[in-house]
């Protein structure tokens, strides 16, 4: 029997098939990587406990009204200045009487004994507040914490907090979080002037 050469498959339509698949994937998929501000909600407590007493000097009160105006510590404040004011409050570097008290925390890894401020940020908004404003305020408060943490991390390891996070240095992150714990408490919103 004479050996016949196997007929070659026509590759001309290969491009069309690939194009078809490509277009299918272009239509059926999305590119966006979701990102956003992470928050943890407080769990619901069954039996209503009495409110824990926190001294007034330890609380940084931020109120947002339905016209998206800010009242911070009984003063009207521009949102641009919120971060600096929050930073000043959280750290209380000058040990002022009006800013939060400090408590000695012993044996923080890497840092030893440290004075940690008893700060709490209380955020309250109106039901008519715009979501955009709320997010901007949340962002500024987060930024205040992050910048302070960065300063601390830079001084100790000359790396930013985010860099430590990337390197999965869990112990170092924990130590920093102990010195600057993020405490943002959100009160139930009021309903004044929708």
């Amino acid at each position: 029997m004479a050996r016949r050469e196997a007929p070659e498959i026509n590759g001309g339509s290969m491009a069309d098939i690939a194009f078809m698949l490509l277009i299918f994937f272009l239509v059926a998929t999305t590119m966006n990587i979701d990102s956003g501000i992470m928050r943890k909600l407080p769990p619901i407590v069954e039996d209503q406990q009495d409110d824990i007493d926190i001294k007034e000097r330890n609380v940084f009160v931020v109120l947002i009204n339905s016209n998206d105006q800010l009242l911070v510590e009984n003063e009207i404040l521009n949102i641009k200045n919120l971060k600096d004011k929050a930073k000043e409050f959280i750290a209380n570097k000058a040990n002022l009487e009006t800013l939060p008290e400090k408590k000695l925390v012993k044996d923080i890894p890497f840092f030893g004994d440290q004075m940690v401020s008893k700060q709490v940020i209380s955020l309250q908004n109106d039901r008519g507040t715009k979501y955009d404003t709320y997010i901007t305020v949340q962002n500024e408060l987060t930024k205040a914490y992050n910048e302070l943490r960065d300063e601390l991390a830079m001084g100790k390891w000359s790396k930013t907090y985010a860099q430590l996070e990337k390197a999965h240095e869990k112990d170092k992150l924990k130590a920093i979080r102990k010195i600057y714990p993020m405490r943002i408490s959100e009160a139930e919103p009021k309903n004044i002037g929708e």
Binding site: D34, S35, G36, M38, R39, L41, P42, P43, I44, I135
Partner: peptide, 14 residues
């Protein structure tokens, strides 16, 4: 969400 005890949330932003 609190009642459903889904406490980890993310405010999606760009």
């Amino acid at each position: 969400l609190r009642r459903a005890s889904a406490l980890k949330i993310n405010y999606s932003t760009s």
